[in-house]
Simulated assay, not measured.
Amino acid sequence: MASYMRKNGKSPNYIKKSVKSILAQSYTNWELFVTGDNYENEREFSSLFTSISSSKLFLHNLPEAGERDNLTGIELWQSGGASAMNDALQRAEQHHSTCGSKCNIYVAHLDDDDIWSVEHLSELLSVFTRYPSVVFTWTKGYFCHSEGNPYPPTMVPQDTVNNWLKPFGGNILHSSYAWNMTVFRGFRYRRLWDFPPNFQDSKTTDYDLFEVVRAYITAKKLDYYHSNRATIEHLVEMGNSCTKNGSLWYPE
Rank of each mutant, 00 (worst) to 15 (best):
D87R: 07
M181R: 10
S79H: 03
Y27K: 07
I172G: 02
I115P: 02
S146F: 14
N8W: 06
N41P: 02
N171I: 01
F199L: 12
H174V: 14
I22W: 00
F45D: 05
E252R: 07
R6K: 14
E44L: 09
V161I: 05
L62W: 03
N104I: 01
S46N: 15
T160A: 07
Y216N: 08
Y250A: 02
V236C: 14
I22L: 11
N163D: 14
C144Y: 00
N228A: 09
R229F: 15
G239A: 12
T160C: 10
F33M: 08
H120Y: 06
E44F: 11
V134G: 05
S83C: 12
P12E: 09
N86I: 06
H120Q: 08
R190Q: 10
N104W: 01
N38L: 03
P157A: 04
D87Q: 11
L59R: 07
T231K: 04
R185P: 06
S101E: 14
V127S: 02
Q25N: 11
F143S: 13
I52N: 02
V107N: 11
P12V: 10
L23S: 06
G73S: 11
T35Y: 02
T154G: 11
P153W: 04
Y189G: 01
F33A: 15
I105S: 03
Y14L: 08
L57W: 03
S241C: 11
A88K: 01
F136W: 07
T50Y: 08
K166Q: 14
R185A: 09
K10H: 14
H226P: 04
M155E: 09
D223N: 11
N180G: 05
S26I: 08
T231G: 13
W116G: 00
Y250T: 12
I115G: 04
D223M: 03
T218C: 05
D111I: 00
Y177R: 10
Q78S: 10
W193A: 12
R6N: 10
A215G: 13
S54R: 12
I105H: 10
N86V: 12
R214T: 05
E64I: 09
A84I: 08
T72P: 01
A92E: 02
K10L: 09
K7Q: 12
S133G: 04
S117N: 03
N240H: 15
A92M: 13
S26Q: 13
S117H: 00
H174A: 13
T137Y: 06
T160G: 06
Y177S: 07
T243M: 08
T28E: 10
N13S: 08
W164Q: 04
T35I: 13
E119K: 15
E123K: 14
I52S: 01
L124P: 00
Q158N: 09
S146I: 12
T72D: 15
V183R: 03
R6C: 04
G186F: 15
